[in-house]
Amino acid sequence: MREVYQIIRRPLITEKGTDLKDRANQYLFEVAGDANKIEIKRAVESLFRVKVRQVRTLSVKGKKKRLGRFVGRTSNWKKAVATLNEGETIEFFEGA
């Protein structure tokens, strides 16, 4: 079994993520590209000591970037939306 820090790379603190947190008790994370929903659920539960009801994932395509005449791409990455049970919160996001 992989380390939780290999599965969950970082929390995503954005306007949309803050709105989801306030409205639907959902939290956004950047996760490893090969992580599945079960691994993500276990990692969030053990890292933040909360109960996760549902995990949804989506793959984000990298963007084209230019530097003068050179064209490159940013990396593709995976995003996870974790829905917590009623009354549960993650304190890390409350200060943001």
Rank of each mutant, 00 (worst) to 15 (best):
K79H: 05
R9W: 04
F70D: 11
G62D: 06
R23Q: 15
K78S: 00
I7R: 00
L67D: 14
K21S: 12
S59I: 13
R69L: 15
F93V: 09
G87Q: 10
I7L: 01
V81F: 06
K65A: 03
D22S: 08
V52H: 05
L20V: 13
V60E: 09
I13T: 02
Y5T: 04
E15P: 06
S75M: 07
K78T: 07
A82T: 08
K65C: 05
I38V: 14
F48W: 13
K78Q: 04
E86P: 06
I8V: 05
S46Q: 09
F93W: 07
L58S: 10
K63C: 10
P11R: 02
E30M: 03
D19R: 14
R66Y: 14
F92Y: 15
R49C: 03
N85Y: 12
R73P: 09
T89L: 11
A80L: 10
E3D: 15
E94R: 03
L20K: 06
K41M: 10
A24P: 05
A24V: 15
A82P: 05
W77R: 01
G87S: 11
T83C: 03
F29A: 00
S59D: 08
E94C: 04
E15A: 04
G33C: 06
R9Y: 03
Q54A: 06
F93P: 04
V50W: 05
K21Q: 15
L28G: 00
K61I: 15
R42D: 02
N76A: 14
L58K: 06
T18C: 13
R2H: 06
N85R: 06
